[in-house]
Amino acid sequence: MHWYVDVLKKYAVFSGRARRQEYWMFILFSVIVSIVLTIIDTVAGTSPVIASIYSLAVFLPSLGVAVRRLHDTDRSGWWLLIALVPFVGAIILLVFLASEGKPHENSHGPNPKLVPAH
């Protein structure tokens, strides 16, 4: 749960690096919340109002953590745009987001695995 809250605290932070665990735990929790809200929307007859509001609320944090995740692999955040390429773009982006971060300090900051939690 703290992975989700930590990303929300960095609401629109696009600098620095994010570990794989931080990114994927945020995505997992966000997908679960989206599914639950969609079910609530359907049952309440307000489909897709509540789920859409949630999606809009977490758009910037999702974008920020994805950019920081790419920074951890020593890539620019602009690589997110590769997802716009039909068929292969999303696959390439998925590989980038799932790959191991660089173990050394890069131009985006120190290795987040070695930085003590605060």
Rank of each mutant, 00 (worst) to 15 (best):
H104S: 12
V31K: 09
M25I: 00
I91S: 06
D74L: 02
S30F: 01
I91C: 08
R69W: 07
V67F: 09
W79H: 12
T42G: 15
V95E: 06
I40S: 14
P103W: 01
L94Y: 04
V5I: 15
V65T: 09
D72T: 04
V85W: 04
K10E: 10
Y23R: 07
F29D: 04
I82S: 11
S15F: 00
L114V: 00
Y4I: 02
A44K: 12
G45C: 06
R69P: 13
S52W: 10
D74Y: 03
V49R: 14
R20F: 04
E100H: 11
A18H: 07
L84C: 11
P86N: 12
A51I: 11
E22H: 07
S47K: 09
W79T: 02
T73W: 02
A51P: 14
Y23A: 06
L84N: 03
H2T: 13
V49K: 15
S30I: 00
W78D: 05
I92T: 11
P61I: 03
S15H: 03
E22G: 07
G101V: 01
P112D: 04
F26K: 08
D6W: 02
G45D: 13
K9S: 10
H2L: 13
I50K: 13
F87Y: 14
W3M: 06
A57Y: 12
S47D: 15
P110Y: 00
R75T: 02
I27L: 09
Y54H: 07
P103Y: 03
P61H: 08
V31C: 15
S15C: 01
L97F: 07
L37K: 10
P110A: 06
R17M: 03
V95W: 09
D41E: 14
S62A: 15
A12N: 08
Y54E: 08
Q21K: 15
H118L: 02
K10C: 02
G89I: 01
L37D: 14
H118I: 00
N106I: 00
N111I: 00
S99L: 10
E105C: 00
S15A: 05
V43I: 15
Y54S: 09
G16E: 03
L97W: 05
A57T: 13
S62R: 12
V31A: 15
S34N: 14
H118E: 08
H2I: 06
L97A: 05
Y11N: 05
F59N: 14
L93M: 05
I39Q: 14
A83V: 10
V49A: 15
A66E: 06
Y11V: 02
M25V: 01
V67H: 05
V31Y: 14
L8N: 11
M25K: 11
I27E: 10
S34H: 13
A66H: 06
G45S: 10
K10F: 00
G89K: 06
M25H: 09
G16A: 04
F96I: 01
G64I: 01
I39V: 15
G77N: 07
V5D: 13
I91N: 10
G64N: 07
A44I: 05
V33C: 14
S30N: 15
S47T: 14
V88F: 13
D72Q: 12
V85R: 06
S62H: 14
P61L: 10
H118K: 07
M25P: 03
K9T: 04
L93W: 03
K113R: 09
A90E: 12
G64V: 01
L63N: 13
T73Q: 08
A44C: 13
S34T: 14
V33R: 13
H71L: 02
F96P: 05
Y23I: 01
P61Q: 07
M25D: 02
